[in-house]
Design a protein around this nucleic acid. Structure first.
Lengths: 173, 173
DNA sequence: CCTATAATGTTATATTGTATCATTTTTGTA
DNA sequence: TACAAAAATGATACAATATAACATTATAGG
């Protein structure tokens, strides 16, 4: 399915901010899966069918999904799916930077920027009404955090920013 | 114990950044408890012995403490302490802004700035080596986040910043 | 083909957090 | 003081999230 795509074609297809109501999610999803395949091939790691399926489920929408939500779906597809099935796949995907964990929700969401290998926990805008989540990657925020950390002699390893609020669709005007 | 203190004397005794090895923690703790008492009196809410004790435990150090760690201590002090005992006390303290929840650690830490009623999840520098945690309150960071959110039409309700890294004592030079 | 390694299956259990209802304590008021 | 309403706590059960440990299967490389 993805074997005929030339490498690189999946890059830079993300968009910043929130996705619009009618955005082409099928393309969005295939693009993410395709890029994930490329990256794993480059890195000589194995995006197995199970891992790929979990990634696909996480990318089912732009809303964080709980491990047990994923498990419920897997259980209906393969016999013997259990918590470790999901957590191991998620562990792999997290390590490869293909998904992020939203700490404040105990949930997981696909990463639209899997290429950069910066050790960041990510910057997320999370709608408390509809759950829609946007990953931003704001250098100004990074910079402000860096300066603040420097002031007290703190060495940043993993900045994690999760902003709860209302997305444009849920917050009229 | 705190009844003879004139109001206001507990204000502005926090320090920014990380506490030094030999900082006067007894004073630090008493100051926090005293200010908590004042605030609760002003707000006409009840800092009961149980709640006060939980606050004291959370303030036992500048490291986030898990609910079940608190519970273990309570169980050795009062008969019949159970999870709800701790979670209800923590719920009260969180609501009053006297403690914060560190989402990435499922743990709780005392808030050094309980006066400001901004709806913020807090900005934390968390040492991955020793666990020491500093709450910062950087306006530059707030500002950068605000600007970034505005760009995509997102209305911030509760910004949450948890930066994992190494504190000055664990990160030589 | 064979072996070492990686991935997955399977079962059990640990950790974190809530729901629910009974009881006690406190507050406001007559 | 006495009493009713509200708040707080006690007590039991359970839900939700995550990991440990060991067996089995699949894959890569020689």
């Amino acid at each position: 399915m993805t074997t005929t795509h030339p490498p690189g074609q999946y890059q830079a297809q993300h968009q910043l901010g929130f996705h619009e109501t009618g955005h082409d999610h099928i393309h969005c999803l295939e693009s993410a899966l395709g890029r994930a395949g490329e990256l794993c091939r480059e890195r000589r790691v194995r995006l197995t069918p199970l891992r790929r399926r979990v990634l696909e489920l996480v990318w089912g929408g732009h809303k964080p999904l709980g491990a047990y939500d994923i498990l419920d779906i897997l259980k209906s597809e393969r016999r013997g799916a259990a918590p470790p099935t999901v957590y191991r796949a998620l562990g792999f995907l997290l390590k490869q930077g293909l998904v992020h964990r939203i700490e404040s929700l105990n949930s997981f969401v696909g990463c639209p920027f899997p290429d950069q290998d910066k050790p960041h926990g990510g910057q997320f805008l999370i709608c408390r009404s509809c759950g829609l989540t946007a990953e931003i990657n704001d250098h100004q925020i990074d910079q402000a955090i860096k300066e603040s950390a420097d002031k007290v002699g703190f060495a940043i390893a993993r900045p994690m920013i999760e902003i709860e609020g209302l997305c444009p669709r849920c917050c009229p005007d």
